[in-house]
Design a binder for these strands. Structure first.
Lengths: 363, 363
DNA sequence: AACGCGAATGAGACCGGTCTCTTGACATTT
DNA sequence: AAATGTCAAGAGACCGGTCTCATTCGCGTT
């Protein structure tokens, strides 16, 4: 690094000297507290302008203990889901004169821990986190400032939380598929599973992922679809091999006739893979995805989606957090926002419709 | 607001007392500077752990004058262009242990000024800005810390700048259209024009917009297309009336047979409008857009795009800025990144092909 | 005229770090 | 053995604000 070039900035004392008042008085004017006479106020203001005084927010924060900024830790800003949520957060924050310090966890717990540590050291007044793993939350419990959870709930952490009704949404979406006669339905998510998935949905580390899978399984069970667990595919994120894995899935002899995708990034990748495999939506395969991403309405066919109120998600969680910063000490609130399904053209009858019942009876 | 609840945090002095050394020595260990014996270091570290000491980065910044964070002011995080660029910035920043404080200007100069003021007050070490208006840059000239410009150059501001070759890109894209026989070509941008556009491209306030329009006009001139200026449409952003205006354009009797869109958000809106008007791409109308947004490859037909190295844009500008923070004092650099055109299926021959030459001779 | 009171101002401690300067202990040089 | 050098550690100023406390002043009361 390098010695600070010692940029001598204008301080309260400088202004005070120029205005021929005490440092305390100048500080009162500049800081907007205490009482000062109109004449003195004018004099100080003028001196400040003449000297081009600019307050040092850091110094102010040090004494007040408040930094006027909140930290936001999301999985991936590049994902339109998060960037829209962040937009909601920052819009609300700006209205309260609060800044947002952004950190990417890349869905990695270590990076998340690190980001939180740094943000805390920067004395953020509050934190909004999208926890990457619900298994490892010790670092979240240690957080000394108000914390709010975005999109992912943590049963063991009783803090303000805003989520959507993932389980119900997944259930309704899956029902649309089962009612169209589908029996081989896959659920594809970018989440990675630590250890094996043996039907123990409760062992899944991200609440959103778990809830959705449970909803998916609920609907499968309702419709009497067996072995739905085997059709849950993890790790379809931005990793190198993910796309190839999708193609394998689509080319297997018992390939699914319908897919529910956990987010729009996965869905777009699936959409491409489906086309690359020469399959047609919805004739050969039906597709529903979470998140009404902009592209889903312009494809041929347009995609049926689970529309999550993403902007509102960010807006709500920011409001909750800021309310708490202002001293609200009501018990933590858990807001669950409703989702709606936008039915477009990507769901058709199962191409195996005749076969399906046979298959079912075989077992 | 509220009195700070006086959370008595553990300070260097506390650790010093616990470890039975002086504050200065404890600070040396905790701050990682100066020299300390191994025994004392161990003692201090142990005391720090026992007390759960957490450094106050604010206090540190106050004396060092360095805050370890940079401010980023973009037009709209929600726009995938910016969120990808921000991703590039924050990836680079993290590698250098630097945080990113994000601010949205909403392409509004006043908001931009305000954001910059706040970020400066927070003592950011450097700033990355996407200036909303190249006409109003006084506030940028006043910035006391290293500044770097992203995506938009400012001739009057000699600072590190990373842009793409907008003019050339627009020219090449437009040529593709003119070579396909198009003569009625529209350029549609979200930017708003202050005052009238009377061919005085130099009066346009955003460099990116200006360069692209000049490139567009270059190619039109080359091809002998007259009155291209009249086909430049501003204000097609997220404003309420924008979509209706597009439909008007598409329904007019002399509607364009080809459109060049300034960004993917505008293009998506256009794509929808085109479909709503019952027109077909590329039979009735050809479309090219800036930014290889994810959706452009999955529409029917897929869209020909100008692929900008967006992530690299963010990465480069962050690298430039950070290099400068480290003391590099080479003259400001202006990096222009190359773009490539990805030809897909959205460009076809002009439906007016026969007519076109006639039209041209008429004038 | 003496008193009380609130408003305006000044003096200086304080926040939690960094960093300069000084001192003391011990090692090395001659 | 005296002089010199080196390193570890301590004392305390400092960064640029806020805020407590004391002081002064003007003015209405009784």
């Amino acid at each position: 690094m390098k010695r600070p070039p010692k940029v001598p900035s204008i301080t309260v004392s400088d202004v005070a000297r120029e205005a021929k008042v005490s440092k305390a008085t100048a500080a009162r004017v500049l800081g907007g507290y205490g009482t000062v006479s109109e004449t003195v106020r004018a004099a100080v203001l003028e001196a400040a302008k003449a000297l081009d005084y600019r307050p040092n927010e850091l110094a102010r924060s040090m004494t007040t203990g408040r930094s006027g900024s909140i930290g936001v830790v999301v999985g991936d800003i590049e994902n339109p889901f998060f960037s829209l949520a962040v937009r909601g957060i920052s819009d609300v924050a700006r209205l309260s004169g609060i800044n947002v310090i952004l950190a990417n966890s890349g869905e990695d717990v270590e990076a998340e821990k690190n980001a939180i540590r740094v943000l805390m050291a920067k004395q953020v007044d509050g934190l909004i986190v999208t926890p990457a793993q619900s298994g490892e939350i010790a670092h979240l419990k240690e957080i000394a400032c108000p914390l709010a959870l975005l999109d992912r709930a943590l049963p063991d952490l009783d803090v303000d939380t805003v989520t959507v009704d993932d389980r119900d949404a997944a259930r309704r979406a899956t029902r649309i598929l089962t009612q169209a006669g589908h029996r081989r339905i896959a659920y594809v998510t970018a989440a990675v599973l630590s250890g094996d998935f043996r039907g123990a949905a409760s062992r899944i580390n991200t609440s959103t992922v778990r809830e959705r899978i449970m909803g998916f399984l609920d609907a499968c069970r309702e419709a009497g679809v067996d072995g739905a667990e085997r059709n849950i595919h993890f790790g379809s994120g931005r990793s190198p091999g993910a796309h190839a894995l999708m193609q394998d899935l689509l080319r297997s002899h018992d390939r699914p006739t319908a897919i529910l995708a956990s987010d729009s990034v996965v869905a777009l990748d699936l959409f491409k893979a489906i086309r690359e495999c020469g399959l047609s939506i919805p004739r050969d395969i039906s597709l529903i995805t979470f998140h009404d991403a902009d592209w889903t309405s312009v494809t041929t066919p347009p995609i049926t989606v689970i529309d999550q109120p993403v902007y509102a998600l960010g807006k709500s969680v920011a409001e909750l957090l800021i309310r708490r910063l202002k001293g609200d000490d009501r018990p933590p609130e858990r807001i669950v926002l409703p989702t709606t399904i936008i039915e477009r053209m990507s769901v058709g009858p199962s191409p195996l419709a005749g076969e399906a019942s046979t298959l079912r009876q075989e077992r």
